[in-house]
């Protein structure tokens, strides 16, 4: 099962079994965003609390999903906590670049083909590197990116609220 071990690295299973930042925040003041993976029914409920300087003061993850979507969400929450929105967006771009390279090679379905977006960051991904194996399992890329897309959606909603 070498292929499987590539996908399910120990650190992924650890985050799946012991998810970080699991739970909810009061909303408002926190912003709540929901993401769905219509393919497999996974759901992510994200609560983000920003401080006055636009720094992610706290983040909580709810919902259910497979080990890939749940561990990715857990690692993401740990990685973006204490970061500014811009830093979190750059990290998102870096993570998605890691996910997308192979996707464009296999001529993915386009919905996540953001590889040609100007990638503004090549930040160190730390634990998140463990998810690199996912690109070999194209149908699972959507699982890995669900929480990140939901985070981007939260930021977009916050920006829309601020201007509207």
């Amino acid at each position: 099962m070498s292929g499987l071990e590539d996908l399910y690295r120990e650190i992924i299973l650890d985050h799946y079994r012991n998810p970080r930042n699991r739970g909810e925040l009061e909303s408002p003041p926190a912003h709540r965003a929901e993401g769905f993976n219509p393919l497999c029914g996974d759901e992510i409920v994200l609560h983000v609390l920003l401080d006055d300087d636009g720094v992610i003061d706290d983040i909580k993850i709810g919902g259910q999903g497979c080990s890939i979507s749940q561990s990715s969400a857990s690692m993401m929450s740990a990685a973006v906590k204490g970061k500014t929105i811009e830093e979190a967006r750059n990290l998102t771009a870096t993570f998605k670049a890691m996910m997308s390279i192979h996707e464009t090679e296999i001529g993915g379905d386009g919905s996540e083909a953001e590889a040609d977006e100007p990638v503004t960051a090549d930040l160190p991904l730390g634990d998140l590197e463990a998810l690199r194996g996912v690109v070999k399992f194209p149908v699972r890329i959507k699982c890995a990116t669900l929480s990140w897309n939901t985070l981007s959606q939260a930021f977009d909603e916050l920006a829309a609220e601020a201007t509207g």
């Binding site: 499987l4 497979c66 699972r140």
Partner: peptide, 29 residues
């Protein structure tokens, strides 16, 4: 303790083709 998506992934290693998901029946799920 194992999500359907992960089950199906392991089953594929055994050449067993099954379908994970909500099967287009979300109210029933």
């Amino acid at each position: 303790g194992v999500h359907a998506h992960d089950v199906s992934q392991v089953l594929d290693e055994h050449a067993v083709c099954i379908r994970p998901g909500h099967h287009c029946a979300k109210p029933l799920m």
